[in-house]
Design a protein around this nucleic acid. Structure first.
Lengths: 375, 375
DNA sequence: TTGTAAGCGTTATCAG
DNA sequence: CTGATAACGCTTACAA
């Protein structure tokens, strides 16, 4: 019934009186078919609404033109942008995208690994922290299974030289240095940080970049002013609350990311403080809402869309699939500081006094070109 | 090479000295296998890192446990939530999700339709406007092709009784009435609306709901105050600009959706007006950022996540796959008003004067349970 | 319980 | 260009 309602190559062949392999040749644009037959076959194809069966193809030995993408959650505003970057490249090369949210849950991640493998996907893109979390080595085993089948695996964030994966990494050191310089030039000296959640690689990296930057500029951060946090709005709120309870509040706050920055700003304003008049707040990532938020957020911007593009490009790059080249390859992109409204001069000592609570729309800084290079 | 590095059922069978179909029986939990062999087979499976080949399965007659989801763009903050609703239900039933962004582009939509069909997906979920846009009936043809294969198709928004699809529709009339009443009770009489983009079904519906609501309450909208708009931040900005240029500004603005509301608020505040002190702004949809924005946005909330759940549930519901039941089925969910900070009393006539520019965090209204019923 | 055989739709390899 | 044949990995009768 349902079986017979779908037309196959054989149906097309029968309909226009040619052989099955002629149809196959037409479908795959192989040479050796006269223009006349070619046209006849095409006509029959659309007549019968023929659709090549991807399963049969893949079974015959092709890879499924489909990439698996494992992210924590698409509702985290960082990820839609990343996924778009991936998909736009994928579509151009005829690949579909298999979306997997694992909620930082190992069980879900594994399930999806299996699923992606069972479907013979031609690549796997996974976001940071996935391997790090894996306690029993199951994820590592899966990754090796992919490698054995020449299926390229790309990670964001962590470099794992011992695994057959390509890493897409963001170098935020310069941009973080720019951010530190920016705050210092605005006159801030008592600077707090709302830390990312412990355990994530990107978290350690971010804290390290920040402390190194301030140290390098001769104004090391007061470690008392680094408070525990997280990557969500709530973390920003509670971080700000901690600072507000201090006898002497910081005049500038580095939030773990833009969401935390928003939470911090909200809490500060509810506490009667204006940003950036009374306190400056700086975020990380540059999620799309960072420039819409009121005040718009000064942030160490990750090239999120470009990260996605780079990841998918790496999947398609045959060199990546070549196992001899696989271990430990890394592709670097650079973060950069984007100055917006949430940072302003420190009012505490009579530096430059300002009249307006909210600066006018500062023209958005131009991004530098990202320089990609490989290690 | 790469072929041989992956183990098949035959390998497993050989490894533990049983037949291929015994392995198949174990994999599929079929009865009639002794516990002892079952264990031996399972051991061999994990030993060899065996992974059933989904292509072979699907080819043999099964449906691919995969749903295609076609949305305009995942970077539109409405959709991540929807996709999560879909995925969470999908995962529980062992289905994967094939994500397709069509950017309201017919060509991309078609491409993805083919892709989904070629992959024998077990369902297709598409967002509103897709069919409406299709000029040459190609999309309709595709939909019939799905129906012929008993593949359920679910649409958001539009009901298409003539097509073999299930529709998930939001009834926003009551909630819109609540919103109108809310504004009127706050004393607003000169009320403007930033209209959604023309052409979309949801747009006509939204305008209709709003005009009907105010008419029903005895205060019909002044049609002069309905300005052309769109569904993005820019539309909100320009809509607000139009209103600000008027000799007499509206005291309350209904934006086409939350993004437009944010744009409008930003423009108003840049123009020196405070929300809600000087102007109230009301949005639609309740995207996640609506409650984070400063001020948080009063909005006619769609049960976005639940819409996703309902859609995937409909895909899995065998009744949906039954062609006799297919034409014109609809599942209704209700929108509801969520009052937050962006709406406040009209100050124009000496109604209730307020001191603070920004009201305190109003506790978020409880949502009613959504009542689903079918037509 | 297990083995034998056939088939899903496609591609590949031949000889005609 | 066509026809015959085999193979991809799995499922499902049916027979042993």
């Amino acid at each position: 019934m349902s079986r017979r309602s779908i037309s196959t190559m054989a149906d097309v062949a029968r309909a226009c009186g040619v052989s099955i392999q002629t149809v196959s040749a037409v479908v795959n644009d192989r040479p050796g078919i006269s223009d006349e037959t070619r046209l006849r076959v095409r006509a029959a194809m659309s007549e019968l609404d023929y659709q090549p069966n991807q399963q049969a193809r893949t079974l015959r030995g092709y890879k499924n033109p489909m990439v698996g993408v494992i992210i924590p959650s698409i509702t985290n505003p960082y990820f839609p942008e990343l996924v778009r970057g991936i998909e736009d490249v994928a579509r151009r090369s005829g690949h579909g995208l298999f979306l997997c949210n694992d909620d930082y849950d190992d069980a879900k991640a594994r399930e999806y690994f299996s699923f992606i493998r069972a479907n013979n996907a031609s690549g796997l893109i996974a976001s940071p922290g996935l391997v790090a979390r894996s306690v029993d080595g199951e994820i590592e085993r899966q990754i090796h299974a992919f490698a054995r089948r020449n299926v390229p695996v790309v990670f964001f964030g962590e470099q794992r030289p011992e695994l057959p994966v390509t890493s897409i990494v963001v170098d935020a050191r310069e941009a973080t240095l720019d951010a530190a310089r920016h705050l210092l030039e605005l006159g801030h000296r008592r600077i707090g940080m709302i830390a990312p959640p412990v355990g994530l690689h990107v978290a350690r990296e971010r804290v390290r970049d920040v402390t190194e930057a301030f140290a390098a500029l001769g104004h090391p951060l007061d470690s008392e002013l680094i408070v525990a946090g997280g990557f969500d709005i709530e973390a920003g709120r509670s971080g700000a609350a901690v600072f507000m309870a201090l006898p002497q509040m910081p005049t500038a706050i580095l939030a773990s990311n833009d969401l935390a920055a928003m939470g911090a700003i909200a809490a500060l304003q509810e506490g009667g403080l204006l940003v950036p008049r009374d306190v400056s707040v700086l975020g990380f990532d540059d999620i799309p809402f960072a420039k819409v938020f009121q005040p718009s957020i000064t942030t160490v911007a990750q090239p999120i869309y470009e990260l996605g593009e780079a990841a998918m490009t790496a999947i398609l790059d045959p060199a990546v699939g070549d196992p001899t080249d696989m271990p430990g390859r890394s592709i670097w992109l650079k973060a950069e500081l984007v100055v917006r409204q949430s940072t302003g001069p420190c009012r505490e000592r009579p530096a430059t006094k300002r009249k307006t609570a909210r600066s006018q729309n500062a023209p958005r800084e131009e991004r530098h070109d990202h320089e990609d290079h490989e290690t």
